[in-house]
């Protein structure tokens, strides 16, 4: 099934939840409501888009968009070499998306990364814990309202003094 057929089929199956289909640099982008992402990606997988190249997220706070956050899935069909981008929008009030880990195992760590840096929860994920920041870290640093220099977490360590030798008596 070609990409155009798949897109029109998905538009027919999810009429309310497909916001828009746009094109950028010759590749299709389908904008959908976040809660149906598992069903939409399942349809894509069935029609030959068998490879999940990447998942990332965008904070639209200063950009504008359908909702504040968009989780972006890049799919590749290894049969037809076609690519498609799926943008799943979630609002700030309801930051929950279904996990696509059941479709592609690679989504496991990618979704943990988005959970860590954006605070978006993935329902049905087997192990949704922080992947990069320390476990006791507070906040989600890739959000646009997180200060670039942080909230003093980089200054908050015990100071180890020199015990013996040069300058030890200064303390």
């Amino acid at each position: 099934m070609s990409l155009a057929d798949t897109l029109s089929q998905i538009k027919a199956t999810f009429p309310e939840t497909v916001f828009d289909v746009t094109e950028h640099a010759g590749e299709k982008i389908i904008h959908i409501q976040g809660l149906v992402v598992l069903d939409v990606l399942g349809e894509f997988q069935k029609s030959g888009f068998n490879f999940l190249a990447d998942i990332t997220a965008v904070d639209n706070m200063t950009l504008g968009g359908f909702e504040r956050f968009a989780v972006v899935y890049h799919l590749l069909s290894q049969e037809t070499a076609e690519r498609v981008t799926v943008k799943a929008y979630v609002s700030e009030e309801n930051l929950i998306l279904p996990s696509v880990e059941s479709l592609w195992k690679t989504a496991d760590w990618q979704e943990r990364e988005i959970y860590d840096l954006f605070g978006i929860t993935f329902e049905g994920h087997p192990n949704l814990v922080r992947i990069m920041n320390p476990d006791d870290f507070e906040g989600h640093p890739l959000r646009k309202d997180y200060p670039r220099l942080g909230r003093k977490e980089r200054d908050n360590f015990p100071i180890v003094e020199r015990r013996i030798g040069r300058k030890a008596q200064r303390n």
């Binding site: 920041n133 640093p141 997180y146 200060p147 670039r148 220099l149 942080g150 909230r151 977490e153 980089r154 200054d155 360590f157 015990p158 100071i159 180890v160």
Partner: peptide, 12 residues
């Protein structure tokens, strides 16, 4: 100069 990088180990 970001939240996650220590600004000189001699601070600690």
């Amino acid at each position: 100069d970001t939240y996650s990088v220590i600004q000189g180990i001699d601070r600690f």
